[in-house]
Amino acid sequence: MINANAKKILEVRDLTATVAGVDILKGINLTVRAGEVHAIMGPNGSGKSTLAKVLAGHPAYTVTGGEVLFEGKDLFALASDERARAGIFLGFQYPVEIPGVTNSAFLRLAYNTVQGGRGKEELDPLEFDDLVREKMKLLEMNPEFLSRSVNDGFSGGEKKRNEILQMALLEPKLSLLDETDSGLDIDALRVVAGGVNTLLNAGNACVLVTHYQRLLNYITPDYVHVMSAGRIIRSGDKSLALELEERGYDWLLDDKKAGATV
């Protein structure tokens, strides 16, 4: 939902970043306003997942230039946990398994930490149990996943549902969903996308990192950006995603090369 007067949630200016000394992001510019859904597409290795991880504060990446404002403030002044409490959520492409910690204990700890950080009320185990079971319905998750260890032995689809469950609990202002559609069959994709749609509103925003158009059949993006070699090479509306689906990425890359020679 585009509203040109909505407040800016995220402003990325000339962002560059490296991993292990290799340049991955080579000058990203992106503005996300409240209410908007942005899809970032691109071939493998284009840097789209890196962008999501850099914004969330993954320690493996080093920011080498540019700036990022989150709600008008310097994002890089915040550690990753502070970003989470401030309202940034990263939905992982590969959620980690943590044997030995029950999902319910983990979800409640995350919820209460974020609530506490925002000066809101924390919940005791019983109150939290009611809340989390309610949110699980949204994702058609079996409550038995509460008593299992975090993501331990979950299928790919179950892990992604668990990610969106965390998004539902933490109520972020900006959700960065990294390949949330990968590893999902069509039914799971419908459920997960439906969950995301329910959580999006005029006050928050979402950046979907995806390789394929099919997720965008369920979550309609306001903007589609194509990344290649660490830059956004083309931005458009949802029709761009459909064009990519039909024509692949090569024509854009060829365009870019052709443009570069002019």
Binding site: A56, G57, H58, P59, A79, S80, D81, R83, A84, R85, F89, L90, F92, P95, V96, I98, P99, G100, V101, F106, L109, A110, T113, V114, G117, S149, Q166, L170
Partner: peptide, 20 residues
Amino acid sequence: FYLKSRGLPEAQARNLLTYA
């Protein structure tokens, strides 16, 4: 990083993983 991305401060994240 996973735990910190869910808001847990470094020390708390370390404790939880050690415990786990």
